[in-house]
Design a binder for these strands. Structure first.
Lengths: 206, 206
DNA sequence: ACCGCCATTGACCAAATTGGTCAACACCCC
DNA sequence: GGGGTGTTGACCAATTTGGTCAATGGCGGT
């Protein structure tokens, strides 16, 4: 790709990346047209191919970029901050996610779709990158938490997965989604987390 | 549409409908090509346009058909059977859903996508049909359940929505999904429901 | 064996869309 | 005015699009 892309002002880079991720996010690689991306960004198609030699190259770059963003966010914000309460940490994590959605609206959907893409536009190596990222965040997360606060017989893995699935279910609905609606969803999610906390923690930790 | 379609053997009707729903389910109306549908069904494009004059007509028919299926299933299986325990009824409902997924693999995704389609291919009337269906199933459901079994302070709406979202989160992942994988997901869902039951019901009802 | 019927095909069409190119433009700093 | 540089919009050949249609194949009846 053309390295000059990076000397563009950040806002413009974001504009292009976000438009591309949003567009790729709603269809397969093949079905997503460069034209649509350009139009969404309010930019000529010529410009796109000026910075990225290929649709494929653009796609690959986006994926790598998205992973970088995820890792960066995870690293600086979650790992350093030593919260050990399951639900508080979860809440923090969710807040980070919301920040990301605000700034890169198409990122999660794009990554999801990229992961499940049948056409092998993604090398196995990149796919693995995502896998390890997911694994690290989850496993690592649980080992740092105060799991003793849970009632006996509760499997924290189930809790985390249930909440994750619910979050994904929400995500699936955020096709046309304003900023406020996202905020609402976040609050709703928080309600469910609280409900679980109230009922899955031992009483002495409430 | 050509009414002769209905004198085709059921298996063939299902083949065509399912292929179409699957194909429409993975992209917008515009991006989904009649060619792809025909190919997936192993049928010539000519045949498609022999029974449905339009891509649009096919789409509209599918939506109406899907809603019919949902209503029928809901009516005969849930409503008549007078289960009043929240989690048991929920389990039953989920089993019905699984049956539907087995028989009409693309149905739910298709309906979802159709609902969120920006292009107004769906008349507001049809959209309303789905809305009322969702409303009826949920509201109606709760009024028939033994809500007193829940611990004080638990809002059953939250419970049902949490589980519904989780189910949708799963659905979102079932792009490439074999029959057994679906079974696995169902079992997983059941685990979460059980966990909630164990901790949200008053002890005397466990 | 012949018929008529009907589901089904595959070649075909004009029109739109595709990924990608390129000469030219507008702007800004020297 | 002269160079960069970011940007455009017209342009291209190739493919894909929704949709048509004459022809075919097979099957049931007689």
């Amino acid at each position: 790709m053309n390295e000059k892309f990076f000397s563009l002002p950040q806002a413009r880079q974001d504009l292009i990346r976000n438009s591309a991720m949003l567009e790729f996010g709603e269809g397969s690689f093949k079905k997503t047209s460069a034209d649509a991306i350009a139009k969404r960004a309010g930019v000529s198609k010529g410009l796109l191919f000026h910075y990225f030699k290929d649709k494929r190259e653009l796609y690959l770059y986006l994926f790598q970029y998205a992973l970088e963003v995820c890792v960066r966010q995870y690293m600086v914000k979650t790992y350093d901050f030593g919260e050990t309460d399951f639900f508080l940490a979860l809440k923090m994590g969710q807040e980070i996610k919301m920040d990301m959605v605000r700034r890169y609206p198409g990122l999660f959907r794009f990554v999801m779709r990229a992961y499940y893409e049948r056409d092998s536009v993604l090398s196995p190596k990149l796919r693995k990158g995502l896998n390890s990222l997911l694994e690290i965040t989850s496993r690592d997360f649980l080992t740092r938490m105060d799991l003793y606060k849970f009632k006996d017989g509760i499997d924290p893995w189930e809790v985390i997965r249930l909440l994750t699935l619910a979050a994904e279910g929400m995500m699936a609905r955020t096709n046309a989604c304003t900023a406020e609606e996202i905020e609402t969803l976040f609050l709703e999610y928080q309600k469910y987390a609280d409900m679980l906390r109230q009922n899955l923690y031992k009483e002495e930790y409430l």
